[in-house]
């Protein structure tokens, strides 16, 4: 588990005159589930979106699977990174089948796409049942499963999930997290999760980072970070 899939060095990000990330060093090891924690506005989403190329970095270096890369979403997807953002997660007026096909848009081999869809609908049986249904008609939890499956279409090496529990009922959150752990075990996919809902994640994650005011405040095994005193410090501002 020590080989790295992603390494970020000295990353600075500015929004206009405001510096939102300060000299961030961050790494994800192959095969691990990593949690990125921190209070609201700490820069968690900015960090991941910058690594994926959705925001421009001011300074710093991103190395993905051993290669230094200037991130843009198409390059990162081709290199093997998948990103599931917050909020609107699906193409609502398209069927589940078409939603999944969109996940492998960069592939040209139709047979390969169909084979992968077949594998994923077996892995996520709820999608098989509603295969020809419009995504709009799915529940929030099902839509999250669909976005997860779509992100796995191109068999990514690294899957990034930005607050996957947002808007979901606690029972469904548990189901979604169990599926995430299963993805990690079955496909060997490295996973980064930005999440507030820490309790549900503790038993599936391996390591974590705590980001406060755009700086890495702590890193280490989840057990250490989830210590109630540490979390108190994070969320009540003592680590800033």
């Amino acid at each position: 588990m020590t080989e790295k899939i992603l390494q970020v060095r000295n990353l600075d990000v500015h929004f206009g005159p405001t510096k939102v990330l300060h000299d961030v060093d961050f790494e994800v090891r192959k095969g691990e589930i990593l949690i990125l924690m921190g209070p609201n506005g700490a820069g968690k989403t900015v960090l991941l979106k910058t690594v994926f190329g959705l925001f421009e970095k001011s300074v710093g270096e991103v190395e993905f699977d051993g290669k230094v890369i200037r991130p843009t979403p198409d390059k990162m997807v081709e290199a093997g990174m998948s990103f599931v953002g917050q909020g609107k997660r699906t193409f609502p007026s398209m069927t589940i089948e078409d939603n999944l096909k969109m996940g492998a848009f960069l592939w040209t081999d139709k047979k390969m796409i169909d084979k992968r869809i077949d594998e994923l609908v077996h892995f996520f049986p709820v999608l098989k049942k509603k295969f020809k249904m419009l995504a709009f008609n799915m529940s929030g939890g099902e839509q999250q499963i669909l976005s997860l499956a779509r992100a796995l279409m191109m068999n990514p090496k690294l899957l990034v999930l930005d607050e996957p529990s947002i808007g979901l009922a606690p029972k469904i959150v548990q189901d979604v997290f169990e599926k995430i752990a299963e993805v990690n075990k079955s496909f060997g996919t490295s996973i980064v999760i930005v999440e507030h809902n820490l309790k549900s994640l503790l038993h599936i994650a391996h390591r974590g980072y705590i980001l406060v005011k755009g700086k890495i405040a702590m890193e280490g095994p989840v057990e250490e970070l989830s210590d109630s005193k540490t979390l108190e410090k994070v969320f009540f501002g003592e680590l800033a």
Binding site: P73, G85, F105
Partner: peptide
């Protein structure tokens, strides 16, 4: 349907 999502998918 969702232009932002298409960018995220590498299009």
């Amino acid at each position: 349907d969702n232009a932002e999502l298409t960018t995220i998918l590498g299009l």
